[in-house]
Amino acid sequence: MDESQNTLSTGRSPAMTYGRYLLVWIGLVALTSLTVALAGIHLGRWVILTALTIASIKSTMVLFTFMHLRSEDRTFRVFVLVAVVTLGIFIVLTFFDYAFY
């Protein structure tokens, strides 16, 4: 047929896809609880790093499952990587400039 079936053409049945999405959602909720719980503890200067690390993990989960990056053509992953790394360099270097001088 055409390419429209591609995003789910990983050999999984629809039931497995429902299950996988639900699992990812549970993981996202768990990580949200974790980040809220950690905010109550005073981690000093590490607090922003842990918060951003958890946020990055959550975003990766959304990108790869909900946004289908896992099953998309490789080109998509390269594009996203370039975009995220570019922005990441801007942000991390700025943080280093101001946080650790």
């Binding site: 980040t35 607090v47 918060a51 946020a55 975003s59 909900f66």
Partner: peptide, 14 residues
């Protein structure tokens, strides 16, 4: 959703 995932800790948790 992803933008909110970052807005949330930066404004509400720190």
């Amino acid at each position: 959703d992803i933008i909110w995932i970052f807005l949330f800790p930066l404004f509400y948790l720190l």
